[in-house]
């Protein structure tokens, strides 16, 4: 039964992903070919994985936030902050030792955790709506990132730093390993502990969860911190990839792509059940869409129109009103509150 459900949730996203990849084959015969060059696997598929890494990462964080009925608009700015901190820490380093690298990673990630915690506190303790609470850092975070970089695109000459986003391990880009690690951690934490259950419970019915003894405030705090951490890692990858810090443009509009990936992956914006695997596929769809548009030779900016249509279709399919009007499912008006009150008869 559960397997069947998972299948239906993942079915359409997978089909869409395959479809996009197959379309590429018509324009580029060698699209699916992967070859070993200088001990590195190269090819379009590897490229999609590598370039998609930051998006997948923040989408994983975003999935948990959305599962609690929240949203995190600040991830794009956190990416910029993290990249800026990481790059600036090692910008003047001439040595080749790995000390500064750890320093850079540690510093960025700790700050991103704090920043995520700030969002979480505003949402869970102060009671600000998630959109509003994270809007603050969406605006200010980018300013802080620019402050750190001095508004310049600062180039990093410290070689080890390039390993995070540009290095290879066992013939695969290192960023793929990072994504795999974070994904596995997220799956382990949410599915092998009760955390996932609590998150879904809080997102589905926060009042009832409180009465069942769940500390919903802490759960919310935690997911925003995790989202901040994911964005931090993504920021390091992006900045290491180009060996520079760019406070202005790093991570611009990533939050919107991430929300899109989560929604495509089958997690509802109304909170509750979440699908990490679906999210990963959703992010891959968005990344391959971008790649495809490049390879077909359509102006890259058309991407935005396609994305807009995808968002609309997905949301309409999730809307009960739309399904009722179009497919005629569920004729009764879902006035939950009244039904609850008039629950008269019988089992």
């Amino acid at each position: 039964m559960l397997k069947g459900m998972m299948k239906t949730k993942l079915f359409w996203p997978i089909i869409v992903l395959i479809l996009i990849l197959v379309i590429n084959l018509f324009f580029d015969r060698s699209f699916f070919s992967i070859e070993l060059r200088n001990g590195h696997l190269t090819g379009s598929l590897i490229d999609i994985l590598n370039r998609g890494a930051p998006l997948i990462l923040i989408s994983i964080g975003m999935t948990l936030v959305i599962a609690t009925k929240g949203i995190d608009l600040s991830v794009g700015s956190i990416i910029a902050m993290s990249g800026a901190i990481g790059a600036m820490t090692v910008a003047d380093t001439a040595s080749e030792g790995s000390g500064p690298l750890w320093m850079a990673i540690g510093l960025s990630l700790i700050i991103c955790l704090v920043v995520g915690g700030w969002n979480g506190l505003l949402v869970s303790r102060v009671g600000v709506q998630p959109i509003v609470a994270t809007l603050i850092l969406m605006v200010a975070g980018r300013g802080i990132a620019q402050l750190i970089t001095g508004g310049q695109i600062t180039t990093v000459y410290y070689e080890p730093y390039s390993f995070i986003g540009g290095g290879y391990l066992l013939t695969l880009p290192f960023s793929v390993f990072i994504v795999a690690f974070v994904f596995l951690m997220a799956v382990l934490l949410t599915r092998k502990t009760a955390l996932g259950l609590f998150i879904e419970s809080v997102g589905s019915n926060a009042d009832a969860s409180r009465l069942a003894g769940i500390n919903s405030k802490n759960i919310m705090l935690m997911v925003y911190m995790f989202s901040g951490l994911c964005a931090g890692v993504a920021g390091l990858i992006l900045s290491s990839n180009v060996m520079s810090a760019d406070g202005n443009n790093a991570g611009l509009w990533f939050e919107l792509d991430a929300i899109l990936a989560v929604v495509i992956g089958g997690t509802s914006l109304m909170g509750g059940r979440f699908y990490l695997m679906g999210t990963v596929i959703g992010a891959l769809i968005i990344q391959s869409l971008t790649t495809t548009i490049y390879s077909i030779g359509v102006p890259a900016e058309t991407n935005l129109v396609v994305k807009a249509l995808v968002v609309l279709v997905v949301c309409l399919l999730q809307s009960a009103e739309f399904r009722r009007k179009v497919f005629g499912i569920g004729k009764v008006k879902p006035t939950g509150e009244q039904k609850g009150r008039e629950g008269v008869t019988l089992s």
Binding site: E200, D207, A208, E337, G340
Partner: peptide, 13 residues
């Protein structure tokens, strides 16, 4: 709770 729908069940679980 007497309000099973709003304070009892977690509908999506």
């Amino acid at each position: 709770s007497e309000n099973r729908k709003t304070e009892g069940i977690i509908p999506e679980l």
